[in-house]
């Protein structure tokens, strides 16, 4: 037993070493957000900052709160719209039997793999024509389109866990598909739907490329605001650090919520826990 205890300690040490590789860079940025410009780059480094120094955050928030609000509207909006479109489709692909079913599923999945950069200019022209450029609405529509394939596939993988007998029994009792969807499938897949929603939320929250193409001023999202800070000649690193911390809070909190379903989500439902 003693050798196995020692082995565990060694392995644990390695695990902690790896964890530090993945967390220390983030912590250094977090600490930086509590320092002024000089302290951020002082040599030798100031290892532990004064955590009561909040000036970076107050400056940042007062300059950028409207971009944060834009980001939240776009992210929450596209998450909701994505679910409204995807859940019924995922349900249909799971429980209906029709010709071309597999083809349709594959087709939906393959649109997920298309690079957004290849769609940017045509969508730009389309939204310019519709007079919707630089609007939150346009961003919600585009993010939704890019997230639907993911949402359909992952929700379908969760719907598939519902016992078929349950569905068939309700059909025999005369329930409509819509009733089954709303009263059986959705309540039974709450956990899965939450997983999908969290992923879609994070994808939209993190998006940069499309927002770069589509927004000029009114609809600029928080990532656009941050990247603009870095393109200036003189980077004010305190502000950048504070903005980075603010931007990172939702993904970090939500990842902790995701826990076990993260593999399943990242592989589009292919791997189950």
């Amino acid at each position: 037993m003693r050798t196995s205890a020692r082995k565990n300690i060694i392995l644990l040490a390695f695990a902690i070493f790896f964890m530090l590789i993945f967390i220390l860079p983030n912590l250094w940025m977090l600490f930086g957000s509590f320092k002024d410009q000089n302290a951020m780059f002082s040599l030798p480094p100031i290892w532990i900052p004064d955590f009561t120094y909040l000036k970076n955050f107050t400056i940042m928030l007062s300059q950028s709160y409207m971009y944060l609000i834009n980001s939240l509207i776009v992210t929450i909006g596209s998450t909701i719209v994505t679910l409204i479109f995807s859940l019924p489709t995922a349900f249909g692909l799971t429980f209906f039997i029709f010709r071309g079913q597999n083809f349709l599923a594959d087709w939906i999945l393959s649109t997920r793999m298309l690079p957004p950069v290849a769609a940017a200019v045509p969508l730009f022209i389309l939204f310019k024509y519709l007079n919707l450029l630089d609007s939150l609405f346009a961003l919600i529509i585009v993010y939704t389109a890019f997230n639907i394939p993911f949402a359909v596939w992952v929700s379908a993988s969760f719907f598939r866990r519902i016992p078929m007998d349950l569905i068939e029994a309700s059909r025999i009792e005369g329930a409509s598909w819509f009733d089954i969807f709303l009263k059986i499938a959705v309540p039974l897949s709450k956990g899965g739907i939450a997983t999908v929603a969290i992923f879609v939320f994070i994808f939209s929250w993190n998006e940069l490329l499309i927002a770069l193409f589509f927004t000029v001023s009114d609809a600029r999202t928080f990532p656009i605001f941050i990247s603009a800070q870095v393109s200036q000649a003189q980077i004010i690193w305190g502000n950048v650090a504070a903005a980075t911390v603010i931007q990172s809070i939702p993904p970090i909190l939500l990842t902790i919520f995701l826990q076990k379903n993260i593999v399943s989500g990242l592989t589009l439902g292919a791997v189950k826990n």
Partner: peptide, 23 residues
């Protein structure tokens, strides 16, 4: 330990870039 180790996956790529630009 595992949960902390997987945090980078979901971080905004933009922020990952900035973290390393700083470091």
């Amino acid at each position: 330990i595992r949960t902390i180790s997987i945090l980078p996956i979901m971080l905004t790529p933009l922020c990952v870039g900035l973290v390393f630009l700083y470091i």
